[in-house]
């Protein structure tokens, strides 16, 4: 069980979404979760157009040229943005053997260490993603030119997805910086709903 200091806030839920109570650590995190819940509808769109493709191909012998690529793109965007969402609600899977067996002071130091490492990791990844996204949105001459898929339909999805990955990592950077600030100030991480040891 985690021990909560007096400064800790109870789990906060965005308005109107009480059914999905999620512990978030900051207002910024709450915003991330809010956006992510709307992004989740991309999965619904992906499902709907997959069914459309099956019907058009099997029923009317006229498969589309765009469904498969769009589905992969929508799912890739969902996957990318699920990272900040899981970070915001402390849902990333971790091994809690040590964490759950130490006292509050040591726990806080573990929080500080983990928040710092997470921040540095996200910072390095953001830099790498920026380079990747730059290459995908500019041609060798440095002009604006989106990397495309090369199929007959040829949408600029590779450029989109790479840029979304960059955005997701930058968001995670900001999240973990706020977490670091909080833990340095002595506010413990709100544990996820995983209360068991390990």
């Amino acid at each position: 069980m985690s021990s909560q200091s007096s400064s800790s806030t109870p789990p906060e839920t965005p308005e109107g979404e009480q059914d999905q109570s999620v512990a978030v650590r900051s207002t910024f995190d709450r915003g991330v979760v809010w956006v992510a819940r709307r992004v989740a509808w991309l999965v619904f769109i992906a499902m709907a157009i997959s069914v459309y493709e099956v019907i058009m191909r099997y029923g009317f012998d006229s498969p589309t040229s765009w469904v498969h690529e769009t589905v992969v793109m929508l799912v890739a965007v969902t996957f990318s943005l699920s990272g900040p969402a899981a970070l915001a609600s402390n849902k990333h899977i971790r091994v809690r053997v040590l964490y759950d067996s130490v006292g509050p002071r040591f726990k806080l130091w573990l929080d500080r260490f983990n928040d710092l490492v997470t921040f540095l990791f996200c910072l390095g990844m953001s830099y790498a993603a920026f380079t990747m996204s730059w290459t995908a949105t500019h041609n060798p001459m440095g002009e604006w030119d989106l990397e495309r898929s090369g199929t007959s339909w040829n949408p600029p999805f590779p450029a989109y997805v790479k840029t979304i990955i960059m955005i997701a990592l930058i968001v995670m950077c900001i999240q973990s910086l706020i977490h670091l600030y909080q833990s340095v100030r002595g506010k413990p991480a709100q544990p996820s709903d995983d209360l068991g040891a390990a």
Binding site: E17, D19, Q20, V22, A36, R37, V39, A40, W41, V43, F44, T78, F79, L81, S82, G83, A85, A86, L87, S89, K91, H92, I93
Partner: peptide, 22 residues
Amino acid sequence: KTLHGSLSQTLMTCGMIIWIGI
């Protein structure tokens, strides 16, 4: 509400499992 809740859960679950794969 059911649909929105299911989709939210889908996204969160993806966040947990896909990022380990990443």
